[in-house]
Structures are given as C-alpha cells and as structure tokens.
Design a protein around this nucleic acid. Structure first.
Length: 554
RNA sequence: GCGCCCAUAGCUCAGUUGGAUAGAGCGACGGACUACGAAUCCGUAGGUCGCAGGUUCGAAUCCUGCUGGGCGCGCCA
C-alpha cells in the first residue's frame, strides 16, 4: 500500500511539472516513513524538502504545490497537510488499516511470508565452531543470531541453506589428539604432562576416560605419532556429538555439516592452489607459498602453504568459498565472531582474485559475549578450559529467555552476559512479557469457548466497530508486519524483531487492561475476538522466527 | 603503532538507513483486580546522544580529529 501512495505522490509531481509549477530534473526516490507521533499522520514524506533547493523554492512552497496536484484515485486519503519544515503528512481513511486484517486472517500462519526473497537462494554459514570443545555462551549468541536470521530470510521467500563448516583437520585437531592421548595415558597412571598449549578442559579427561572404557589399553603400546591422528578424529567426533546435542536443545537447525576434511578428500584445496598458481596470484618466499591478497585490498599477502608443506586454514577456506560460489547462490552470508574481523579483507581478496562478485558475499560480525558471574569477569578461552558452556546457561536461564536475550541486541553491540543477572531476569525478562500476551489471548479463547462463543473469521465480522485508537494501532502493527520482515531481511538485522514484539505486546496489554474483549455486545465481541486472534497469530509467528515458544498458558 | 567495533536516562539497550518535542525495559516513587490471567496496566521522576569541528533546510545517525573501552594485527584459527 506504500507503493500506491508513492505513486500518487509521483503523479502529483508530474502534474506540477506539466503545468510548469515545478522544474524538471532527476527525482530522488520518494521516501515514506511512519511518523513517530500520531498527530503527524499515518505516513509522511520529505520529498518536498529533498527537491526544494533544485526548485529554487522553499520546501513548504514545493510541498504546497505537490499537495495541490494530489489526486487520490484509490480513495484512501482522509486529509493531507504540510507541516514543520516541509513534510507532507498523510492521514488515511479511518478504515484503512483495518483492511489488512482481512489479509492477515485469510493467510493465517503464512501472513507475511514471501516477498523480497522469492526466487532467490541464500547460503547462511554460521557458528562453525571448531570441534575442540563444547559450545560456550559466545557461540550461543552466534547460533541464535544465525538461526533467527535464516528463519527470517526463509519467511520472506528465500530458499535458505544453513551450513556449519567443521574444521576437522589441521593443527588444532593434532593438538586435540595429543591432549586426549596424554589424558588417556594419565588414566593408566602414566607419568606424562600435558603440553603447555594443550587443551586443559575437564572434558578432555572425560573423553579419555571414555576411550579407556571402550577401547581398553590397546593404544598403550603405540607411539604418540601413531595415534595422534586417530585420537584427534575420535575426540572431535565425540565433541561434535555434544555440539549437535546442544544445538538441538537450543533449537538451532543446520541443513548441512560441511567438513574441511572433505575439501581435501575431493582435491578442492589442491585444485584451488593450482588455479591461483595459474593466475599468477601466488609466489614462493622463504619456503612458503604466499597468496597476493594485497593486490585486492588486503594489507599484506598471506601464506597458503607453510614451509613445512602443510596448507593453512586460509587455503581451505578459499576452496570452501569457491565451492560456495559455484553452488550459485544469490547471496552468501558468513556469520563470524568479531575476533575474526581481520579475516574479512583476505577472504574478500580471495573472492575477487577468483573473479567472483564481491557484492554477493556478506560477512556479519557478531560481537563476543563478555561473560560475567556476579559482576566478576570469567575467562572464555577454550584452551585454558575455563569457560561457561552453552549447556550450563541453557540449564540456568532457559532456552526461551536465553535466545530472546541474545536477540535483544544488534550484532555489533558487545554483550555483557551476567549469569546472576540473567537468572534474575528469569522473572523480569522481556520474553515473558511477550509470551504472556500470547497466553492471555489463548486464555480469552478458553473463556469464549466456555460461553460458547465461536472465534470468528473475517467475513463474519463487522470490523468497522473497531474504531478505538488502540484498535487502529493494533491493526496498523499487523498491517506493517510483512514490510517489517522485509526490512529485517534486507538489512540483515534480525534483532529488530524483539522491538516489534515488545511494541505489539505492549499495545495489546494496554488494550486488554482497559477494554473487554468478551462482553454483552455480541457484534463487538466478535469483532474484538477477530482482532486478538490475528494478533495472536502475529505473535506466534514472530516468536517462532525467534525460536521461542508461544505458550497457550504460563 | 595500524585496522575493525562500541560510547544514547542510575543500569541494560532500541532508534524504521539523514527527519518533526530522542524511546523502551529494569531500578526508584505513586496509583489500578467482586467481570476475559496483576508475569498486566496507568502515572511521576530521570538526557550536553563521550568531546570538538564539518557537511545541509535538518545530524544520535554521514565526514575529520580527539578521549575512553573491547577485539584483531602469526608459516594460529
């Protein structure tokens, strides 16, 4: 509907030009916004202000001319005014927003689905935490963010692939293997010490004990060199199992688990190095092979093959991203922890070097979580083994509150997560506010059922009875839901959903507290039941996008 | 030293891609249940949008320079 209003405005400008009241020239896009204050109308445009200087007239004069030539063909406008420095404010007909209730009711759960993403494919790679330790709270934030973003993209029509890239090979795996091996020996009372850079977490001992039980002493006679690889592999499978369990419990779903090992197995890493060599984009220096990333905006060149002949993670990452591009997505999204930001220029360099479109590749950095316990900082190093696992937080805080809490903040905003505070928020957490609105409506329905009142659909209801400002406001929130989803998908900012929910739930609670849904007036009762039914639906699908439960009772 | 991110109410944070008198939650204070759930609602108090310039009709938002905090700068990931 924004579109038709925009056309009305553009046609008015055209007419003004034809009559010579406005000068020709390029026309900037007509921006329509929802004014914060109701007395500024339902929509406002700043077009007069943006073209005024070129017209050599004051913004208000230009606005007056545009208003004079407005023709409201669809008949949606109640009145128009020029206000402030030159805004044109549109007040729409009283029934305007209510018309959207029909759409929302007819489409039910699908309301808001489809749109900007239709016919497009997007790959969201997120989390991709190394299988060297259990997920911690910082991973949780990225997991929630990626999952919700993917949900939203899916909602607006994209075909979404969610992918987790597993670094299951290389130096980290070796170190993991060695650490478990040492612990395994210690289980057999051998006098060996963990290397200083080894993984020190309790979970390593747990895996070692598990090995002792299932495999017995059969690795004792073998040398470290013979078993490190095996231990690393087995341990990472155990850990990956934990990760998958945690994610399942955290309601995060992946379509594909992409193994770095497979890249090697299929020769993609060798092939990418070959390709770079052919293009003259690598050179040897001090025994290592360097990629000329500085040619493409990186601050310096990067090693892809070490002097000892092993490839770096960067090399397989290039191969992986090439492979992603070849799968022909319209958009490739990588979600990384902010500590990887230095990696962006080199990845972009690699993409350009291979001749791919840089604009299709987007990296979202999620700031790390600063974990506190009772105001005291907790170290988060996996290797040091001091971390608070996602599992522990899920147990303490609950999945709903935890996910909602993460989505309250923008990705770029660092997050202080105080466990004591989060637990306290178990009572005060905004998630309950929204869930309560949903449960309340469910409760109204129960009441209606007791009174044998049917929940109506749109054609059984005279919506013109809904003329309270609150009702108009609620209808408006429902009406803008689809474009709100689009906005999040285009900006890749899923955190806005919590603001929307807060706003919608707040309006509902106020309305509920002041007016009765079920009353003696049967027509009014039907109209209001329809309205809250639709609100319940929007609450529900929004919560679903957040991966938060929408309870019928609390 | 260089690069990225952050700085908005006492606290935690939003702010519709540059709009009109900057908003919410928590906390504080004062009110509202004999009718659909008080996990709610209504009201009050609380601000030099880190500082200084610049861009323009208009800046929390964009540019430059500072200050403070986080992160990164390896043949680690």
């Amino acid at each position: 509907m924004k579109k038709s209003l925009r056309e009305i405005i553009m046609r008015a400008i055209e007419r003004g030009r034809e009559r010579g009241e406005l000068a020709d020239g390029p026309l900037p896009p007509v921006m329509l916004e929802y004014p914060k204050e109701e007395r500024h109308g339902d929509y406002a445009t700043n077009i007069a202000m943006t073209i005024a200087s070129r017209q050599r007239r004051s913004p208000r004069e230009v606005a007056d001319i545009i208003v004079r030539w407005l023709e409201d063909e669809p008949g949606i406008i109640e009145r128009v005014e020029v206000a402030g420095p030159g805004f044109i404010n549109f007040f729409l007909k009283e029934d305007y927003w209510r018309h959207f209730l029909a759409e929302a009711d007819r489409q039910g759960e699908r309301y808001g689905a489809g749109g900007v993403g239709m016919g497009k494919k997007v790959l969201v790679e997120f989390l991709s935490a190394n299988p060297t330790g259990p997920l911690h709270i910082g991973h949780g934030r990225i997991a929630a963010f990626g999952d919700v973003l993917a949900n939203i993209l899916e909602k607006v029509g994209y075909e979404v692939q969610r992918e987790y890239y597993i670094n299951d090979i290389g130096t980290q795996m070796e170190l993991l293997g060695r650490s478990v091996y040492i612990r395994y020996l210690q289980e057999w009372e051998k006098k060996v010490e963990l290397p200083t850079d080894g993984y020190r977490g309790e979970y390593i001992k747990e895996i070692a004990r598990q090995f002792k039980e299932t495999e017995g002493d059969k690795y004792l006679p073998l040398s470290e060199g013979e078993v490190v690889d095996l231990f690393g592999q087995k341990a990472s499978e155990v850990i990956l199992g934990w990760i998958k369990d945690d994610l399942k419990r955290f309601r995060v779903r992946f379509d594909r688990w992409y193994r770095e090992r497979d890249l090697y197995r299929e020769g993609l890493v060798t092939r990418i190095l070959e390709e770079l060599r052919k293009r003259g984009l690598v050179y040897e220096q001090e025994g290592a092979l360097w990629f000329k990333s500085s040619l493409f905006g990186d601050e310096k060149d990067r090693v892809v093959v070490r002097a000892n002949g092993t490839t770096t993670y960067f090399a397989s990452d290039i191969a992986y991203h090439k492979e992603k591009y070849e799968r022909e997505y319209n958009l490739l999204i990588d979600i990384w922890g902010a500590d990887h930001h230095g990696y962006i220029p080199r990845m972009q360099a690699a993409i350009q070097a291979l001749g791919y479109e840089k604009s299709r590749f987007k990296v979202i950095l999620v700031q790390l979580v600063n974990l506190l316990r009772g105001g005291k900082q907790v170290s988060m190093s996996t290797r040091a083994g001091e971390f608070t696992s996602l599992r522990e937080v899920m147990d303490e805080v609950g999945v709903d509150a935890c996910r909602y809490f993460f989505m309250l903040r923008r990705a770029e905003s660092p997050l202080d997560f105080d466990l004591e505070l989060a637990k306290k928020q178990g009572e005060e957490n905004p998630v309950y506010y929204v869930q309560y609105a949903h449960a309340r409506i469910a409760s109204i329905f129960k009441k209606a059922a007791e009174k044998e009142v049917k929940i109506p659909s749109f054609d059984e209801v005279d919506t013109s009875l809904l003329r309270l400002p609150q009702e108009r406001g609620l209808a408006k929130r429902v009406a803008i839901f689809p474009e709100f989803l689009e906005g999040m998908a285009l900006s890749l900012e899923p955190h806005r959903l919590t603001s929307y929910l807060q706003d919608l739930a707040g309006l509902f609670h106020g309305y509920y507290n002041r007016y009765r849904i079920i009353s003696q007036d049967t027509e009014m009762t039907k109209a209001r039941l329809l309205l809250v039914k639709i609100i319940k639906g929007v609450l529900r699908s929004s919560l679903e996008l957040l991966g938060v439960l929408a309870p019928e009772q609390m």
